[in-house]
Amino acid sequence: MATESLLSDEYVIIESITNEFSKEDWASLLEKNDLHHTCPKRIRKSLLFGIPDSLRGQIWPFLTRANHMDFSTYETLSQRKDKIFEPLIQKDLARTFPDHEIFKDTKGPGQSGILRILRAYAQFDNEVGYCQGMAFIAGLLFIHIKSEELTFWAFVSIMFDKNWREIFTSGTPKLVKMLDCLSSQLETLLPEVYNHLQTENLELTCFSPYFITIFGCKVPLQYGMRVADMFLYEGEQVIISLLLNMLSLKQRKILRMSFEELFRYFNSEMAKECFEEFNFETLLSPITKYVESVDDDYDILEG
């Protein structure tokens, strides 16, 4: 494989950017804690390839820069209970990853951990406070990061740097924007699918949980974790790309489905099926490459 040297000394890694990071590379990156000067292409490639499970809990705070934050703030915030949001958070604790080991018990580490994390967030961002869906994001982060403080700041980074908070503000402006974006990309890149969904009268809002919980509540955790690997680095485009690629890879099947079948397929099976059958490189590839031409439909219309 050809190796490429970078002329700029801005990058920490200068040899062979085409190779993904080894476990040792990741460890040394984490030690330097300098995301800004690390080659973006190589990070992306490494994340696509998959990161060492044992380092995920450190890599996520690294990618979100959570490990630069001041820790005493969290201590203070996590102790204040908000009159309005506290009961809402409490209600959702047992309903977040209810089958996962650390979330099973009311007094277990998962439920009490995200209670404090979400409580702190409600203080930190009073406009958003707490909204359903947030517990899944905090929960997914907490399972891997394990430290409440780091999870909190990683969560804050998603909400502010990636502006995910506007999914949870009144009228969900960010969600509306992303669904519009999905819709226009679908119309351009996969017109057959787009038209079929229109014909069947299926609204793209059926994809909203994928955005709201970053796939968290919709797929087995081992896949949710891989989505988060990419999302924490690249943001919303990851969700849109995943959905477009899935719709593209499954389009033959989708085009045969009725409204009810489509809703059910999108609501549960499609994502899981795709993660089982394809790797992340395929699922996040530039969409045009994978568009199969489904000429049969045209023939019927034209004939």
């Binding site: 309903r95 977040t96 209810p98 359903q132 517990a135 809002t205 059926c206 949980p209 509540c217 609501n267």
Partner: peptide
Amino acid sequence: EKEQSTTNANFLE
């Protein structure tokens, strides 16, 4: 007893 919270909608017939 441990139903996950619904973030959008489910469809049943």
